[in-house]
Write a protein that binds this DNA or RNA. Structure first.
Lengths: 185, 185
DNA sequence: ACAGCCATGTAACTCGTTACATGATTAC
DNA sequence: GTAATCATGTAACGAGTTACATGGCTGT
């Protein structure tokens, strides 16, 4: 226990706790679909190397047909993996969020360019924001029906609601910033 | 132009556009004070290596006394640097924010541990959130007096207001999540 | 027949971190 | 005098990326 794995490893391990076994490819798709809103979705190549490491550590095991090459092999979390994940979650502090927000960074440096550039950037951001919100909205909808207390997607739906609230608030704030920037000129 | 520098380099370069010249140490402190809310604040050692690279590229220049060893040398942005930063900001798309939120990740995996653990984590997060907000509040206050349109700290104060709004909203949402988790037991 | 997706991996590389080393100046 | 802060760097390392290589399967 306590192999000091990076958080991304635990994240991938955690994606295998929803009752099914996945190929590396499918795990990547699941990460792209849900994890990417709260964590970085690792590159395809990293998914495979993480799976190799987790297998090595016995936290994950390949299941099903194993015809030599290992094409189409599925991976599932082991009892050891489940225990390790539980220990990590309940004994190590979560730590604070790290944000890399290029729009905020550029707004901070707004005095370097002309105001129209900054306003254009904020408007572009509104579009991007709407696209992301729409994608998360799809995810949220797909969880309906199993999102009640005690049901399978209870926690994923709580996080999705949090994410949707975040997007809504950011949209509101960007619009206010645009209004404030319009005031002068 | 277009040396394809990482965003962090532009961020540090940007911190040198506020009318003063800084030592590496001071630059790190400025990054810790303001940049860290919207971007990662690089490690001390990286600040020095970035300054070396930016100097090499002529985007930054050491000014003042240069007594051999270079102790206490200050760096300032050059005309070339200013131009490069402006070009970067007005011609390359900002890109979407990347969030690494350990609390959201753990909430997503809430079914792995018992509810009390998750609730405890959220309550701890409220405390951390308040500390961060207080720190940003200090920053915001220090900008007062030069935060009007056309003034020196106009843009930094806009970003700070955005950050404060973000913290307020997150606090509200975590409280709602706690309420929702309480509803069951 | 060809495009597009499913599927797995290696190699080279950059970013960024921690640990370590060193020493000057300032405050108490 | 000694602790804290100012100040600068090197070295080793790990996380994570992009580019590249390879090939099967499916639909049209």
């Amino acid at each position: 226990m306590g192999q000091e794995l990076p958080i991304t490893s635990y994240a991938l391990l955690g994606l295998l706790t929803f009752g099914d076994e996945l190929t590396g490819y499918e795990l990547k798709r699941r990460a792209d679909a849900t994890l990417r809103f709260y964590w970085v979705s690792p590159a395809m190549s990293q998914v495979y190397s993480e799976l190799a490491r987790l297998t090595e550590l016995g936290l994950v095991a390949r299941v099903g047909e194993d015809p030599g090459a290992g094409r189409g092999a599925r991976y599932g979390i082991t009892e050891t993996g489940r225990k390790e994940l539980r220990t990590w979650m309940s004994t190590t502090p979560a730590g604070f969020a790290v944000l890399k927000h290029p729009v905020a960074l550029r707004l901070l440096l707004g005095h370097v360019v002309d105001p129209a550039t900054t306003k254009g950037m904020l408007r572009d951001h509104l579009v991007a924001l709407d696209e992301e919100r729409a994608a998360l909205d799809e995810v949220r909808k797909s969880l309906e029906g199993a999102d009640g207390p005690g049901e399978a997607f209870r926690y994923p739906s709580l996080v999705a609601d949090w994410g949707l609230d975040y997007f809504a608030n950011e949209r509101r704030m960007i619009e206010e910033l645009l209004r404030r920037l319009e005031e002068q000129t």
